[in-house]
Design a protein around this nucleic acid. Structure first.
Lengths: 208, 208
DNA sequence: ACGTGTCCTAAGCGCTTGCTCACCCTCCGT
DNA sequence: ACGGAGGGTGAGCAAGCGCTTAGGACACGT
């Protein structure tokens, strides 16, 4: 329970606060393997191998392969959601808060695109209960963005005919960064975050 | 070769022009299975079962499971690309052509979201050669959108500081429709297409 | 010195996977 | 009447899967 609350805005790629060390290496190895080949194409032998241990050692730290995915998905969703809720509850005009939300959310998806890919595209492989838990967090994600947009519409700062649809579009745009972003590509996470914040302000018709 | 050129704008969900009938049922079954559970989580027994035949019958029509995915991916990419290139080569001002492109592209991804999901999110499971072939088509997709945006910038109709980044964003926004769209949801493919066309015109700063 | 708990491995079990093989149906031109 | 082609099946193979088990190495409080 103390794993997922830490370093909400910092770098989670290293998963630095998981102990013992072997468990941390397993999670890190699983993130890379799941992101590169997908959950179902990844074998427990592959994960254990990347973490530098025997296949059996995995089961000392995690009951099943699915629990590893659940751990990654839960922590990842928590970190991403924290960014949005922090922006929603922050100071400033709606346009400012929306820009902060998008910039931070996109930056996280770019910087931790391996983790984000697993978080956003492998949740279908979760077990029923874990899946439901994650879906609840995703509804909160949607609610956070919608809340900011509604604030802007209420204040007359945004021009959004379809709040629900636009919320989906904004989140969809940001989430998909995890799919295409490449660390060796042309843009840095900061650049993409800034670009996307500007695009989203245009989408909601923020008076600029 | 005559399979993927037909009904570019029509409904491809039924895969109506594949013969014999058993092969068509196999592709349709594979699309549904791949879209619901992912390529690697789908078994050949599952596909054959959905198509109403024995596991062995699959191999009369397709050499491997991967070839089935390749067929779906190739045809799907062709259909989606045709929509964009038709809009790019069409008549009208850049804003009009961009709106047509986005509306058609989004509508296809919503209407055929099962096929689109496989096309957009399972291409990593393709073999090396097939993967390269599909990547080439995806570059053409990017080029088509970028071409329209460049036209608009050149004509002074768009305000786009970062053409490359904005092209990626626009395409990303449209593609991700396949992930979240639900046939039993609140919006129809037409509604989403119209909404998205408007959002994209705002993103490129089209003077409206 | 020694029991205890933690962390790990080698071996392998039971099952599922993609795919093949030997064989069996029609249907159809001659 | 009949051979052959096209479309199908039941059984099953080799390989790989997630996961378990029996046991060993090592640090540490006493």
């Amino acid at each position: 329970m103390d794993v997922e609350r830490k370093n909400a805005g910092g770098r989670a790629e290293a998963w630095g606060d998981i102990t013992p060390d072997a468990a941390r290496r397993l999670v890190s190895a699983a993130v890379h393997a799941f992101a590169e080949r997908g959950y179902h194409a990844t074998t427990t032998r592959d994960i254990a191998g990347r973490a530098g241990m025997s296949p059996a050692a995995l089961y000392i730290h995690y009951k099943t392969k699915e629990e590893l995915l659940y751990q990654i998905s839960k922590v990842g969703h928590r970190l991403a959601l924290d960014i949005l809720e922090e922006a929603r509850d922050g100071e400033g005009a709606p346009a400012e808060r929306l820009a902060t939300a998008v910039r931070g959310f996109v930056r996280w998806h770019a910087e931790h695109h391996m983790t984000a890919r697993v978080v956003q595209y492998e949740l279908g492989a979760l077990g029923e209960e874990h899946h439901a838990e994650v879906i609840a967090m995703r509804r909160a994600t949607d609610a956070a963005v919608r809340s900011i947009i509604e604030d802007g519409v209420g204040a007359g700062a945004f021009d959004v005919p379809d709040v629900r649809g636009t919320t989906v579009a904004v989140l969809s745009l940001c989430i998909d960064v995890a799919r295409w972003f490449n660390a060796r590509g042309r843009s840095t996470p900061d650049e993409v975050g800034d670009l996307y914040a500007g695009l989203v302000l245009r989408m909601v018709g923020a008076d600029s």
